[in-house]
Design a protein around this nucleic acid. Structure first.
Lengths: 115, 115
DNA sequence: ACCATATTTGCATGGTTAGCTAAATACGCA
DNA sequence: TGCGTATTTAGCTAACCATGCAAATATGGT
């Protein structure tokens, strides 16, 4: 798994990890703090965090025996950039296009009725 | 895997599938057409497409023995909505916030010098 | 009905991942 | 130095996923 984007999306493809990011959006937290809302063993949490760290979605410090995590949204920005390419396909504009197409077709049909 | 978002992100966490979406952004295509740029066996391609279809990222028709695929960006819009929560953390704005914070702290320090 | 083309399904295999428990490591404090 | 807390590593299992090959299915044309 080389690709940055691939790693990011893979990291995001897990509700637990997304929840951790949501928690970190409110500020830094230790591993134990992050584990608390979940019914997960600490090693499991630790591994989730490693996935997030490898994807660059969090950074970690060494503060005594704590290893506080902090959100790093840079990869999210990359994901956002990737998504941007597809914005033109999001339903509303697509529907608008569709509506416009129908209007055009109706107009054309009228033209043909005349001839 | 129940979660919509989870499915979407999992589907996107593969370069082949992202490339297929990119291709479909230029218009509908058959399975064989989609397979062509890749050194993959057709069954493999077919399964990638099934992942995309299950995630709702593509829709398919039955046109003779062809099963043309079409991009459906709705799940991408959902992903975009999810990402939007984190836009405020994208580096530039974060840096700005950081700078503002420092200004405020400096101001407060001056206040305290007075007293 | 038969053949060619397009696509999917079944099966076997190898790799990946989430989760657990138990043990190891790292650090602060007494 | 020894104890307690925080966190990671090791080792395991079960579930899942990707992929290849071969066979099955679907459909159009002859």
């Amino acid at each position: 798994m080389q690709d940055h984007l691939t790693q990011t999306f893979a990291a995001l493809a897990d509700p637990t990890r997304r929840a951790m990011l949501a928690r970190l959006a409110t500020g830094p937290a230790t591993v134990t703090e992050l584990a608390e809302p979940f019914a997960l063993a600490l090693p499991t949490v630790s591994r989730h965090l490693k996935v997030l760290e490898t994807a660059g979605l969090i950074t970690r410090e060494k503060s005594a025996q704590f290893r506080p995590c902090r959100l790093n949204a840079t990869p999210l920005e990359e994901a956002d950039t990737w998504l941007a390419t597809y914005r033109e396909f999001f339903s509303q504009r697509f529907d608008a296009l569709d509506a416009q197409l129908k209007t055009m077709m109706a107009a054309k049909a009228q033209e043909e009725d005349k001839s």
